[in-house]
Amino acid sequence: MIRDITLGQYYNEDSVIHFLDPRTKINAVLVYLIAIFLVDKYVSYGLAFLFLIFCIKLSKIPIVFITRGLKSLIFLLLLSVVFNLFMTPGNVIFKFGIFSVTYEGLNLTIKMALRLVVIVLFSSLLTLTTTPMELTNGIEMNLKFLKRFKLPISDIALMMSIALRFVPILIEEVDKIMKAQMSRGAKFDDKNIIKRAKSYVPLLVPIFVSAFRRSNDLALAMEARCYNDSDNRTKLNPLHYKKNDLIAYIFLFMYFIILVVLKVAF
């Protein structure tokens, strides 16, 4: 049910990917994202896909666990498919009343869909192999240069880490409230879309209330322990690059170069 959302969840495993520095992983996702938009040939898509599979294998996370994250994306995927498929002008392959499917449209659709899927899978690999704490540490370190422009990076990082930390808690809360309302005869799977939307009111109100309650408690608990965001907060586990990070960067660099070469040369 609601627990199927994998985005923002951590999967505990002892793998090479898990032990990489979070900065390495964040940078890898960034490079991967940029690279995928450079790509336009199916060969390159194949390579991107291979790279993804390679990383998943290294991370030792079961494939099913990662692909579960796609479920929540189906709507977006369908929307992009429909628009690309029917709205692209070009050589018509077949007609369907006023709708016509073109060769270019089909081509674009497949590529767009592949892009979306690959991006989601790769970024969920980041959150699955990195604890929220590591993730925010990594982002904070990556964005440190912005401090010179008086941007409150540590505040933003703290906000992010709290938000991420709350995702599983809220998911659990939704699950619980859903069950409580189901025990009172609520149905969340009504075929009628208006009835279905209405049925979510008994869910949304308690969730918002509990989110506010929890954040209130947290703020109080932090103040009680004298939390303040002075400039020189030290870290419990400062980040250090290790040998494996270098290897990862080399792999990433090679992957990027090959993609660029594929784009330029052929």
């Binding site: 409580a180 309302q181 025990s183 009172r184 005869g185 008994p202 869910l203 949304l204 308690p206």
Partner: peptide, 26 residues
């Protein structure tokens, strides 16, 4: 009938009576 722990966390209506009615309406 199952009453969860801290059942008051499931309130969603603006009046006591309409919240209690939920089950009967269903």
């Amino acid at each position: 009938g199952l009453v969860f722990q801290y059942p008051e966390y499931q309130f969603f209506s603006e009046t006591v009576i309409s919240d209690v009615s939920f089950g009967a309406l269903n």
